[in-house]
Amino acid sequence: MTAPLLDVRGLKKHFPIAKGLFHRVTGHVRAVDDVSFTVQEGEALGLVGESGCGKTTTARCILRAIDPTEGSILYRMRDDSVVDLAPMSVGELGPLRKEIQMIFQDPFGSLNPRMTLFDNVGEPLLVNGMRRRRERMDRVAELLRLVGLRPEFMHRFPHAFSGGQRQRIGIARALATGPRLVVADEPVSALDVSVQAQVLNLLLELQSRLRLTFLFVAHDLSVVRHICDRVAVMYVGQLVELAPTDAVFRRPRHPYTAALMRAVPVPDPRVPGSDAILKGEVPSPASPPSGCYFHPRCMFAEERCRQDAPLLQEVTPGHFARCHFAGELQLGTGQAA
């Protein structure tokens, strides 16, 4: 078997908390704290959790928008050699940038309002050495067609487009350099349901057509259910569950995952809302709770949970959960129709 396209091992990102006149470091925000997972080529891995759990920070480390504190980010090149992105300098990363691209939640933030679609989508091509304008125009036209936009739109500015169209433009830009790995950070969270469905279908189609590999960050589990082959659930900087999508939705093994599922409102008035609502908020990763980080909000917590931190254990083949009782709990998802 070939190595995974992406192999993240023991990834940590700790932001220093600086206080006072001399910016003395008084502690650390452990935004990502020892996270490991792999993504096979052609696979879509979903990364979910409430806001503040460390999803974006994980994504930004992999894209090397920020420097990881510790750990390795192994990436398999086209010739099957494996490189570690974690310690690379800006210069070393240069040629790799076109391999890994990002789609953002707010497509507007990632597009330059003063540039036409041709310049916005064509910029990564220019940066990667496609000097001839004619050639770039052909490629931009092809990209726009790929994402379902008319090539004539190339001479317009982003503000002329709706939210869904802007997200398509953002996708075209991300695909310009022919990446193999696409990191999408909440790409449909800001869109209406009907537009969401169109963009999700587009991503599915592009993935199979271009054999893309996706790391798909989302807080919406129903979206992840639709797009991803496997799901990784994050809580306070750690993975608490990692498993094939079907397995997680059939039988979650971590109480946090089950709680996230129960929180999704069922679009059927005959299915009553769950009474077991997750209370409180995500604790600060600067001072996480003792033992299991989830124990203050967990309805199954026992004395042991306050003391000992559970390890990520393999409950059934390929299904991992970080809970002392992962093998025993029968968790409801509240979604039965």
């Binding site: 349901v193 469905a197 169109q198 999700l200 998802t333």
Partner: peptide
């Protein structure tokens, strides 16, 4: 109603959409 992604749906199936914008 058809275009809502559901927790009970199958992975990687095309969602019915409303044509156009």
């Amino acid at each position: 109603l058809r275009s809502i992604p559901s927790l009970n749906s199958e992975t990687r199936t095309v969602l019915p959409v409303i044509a156009g914008a």
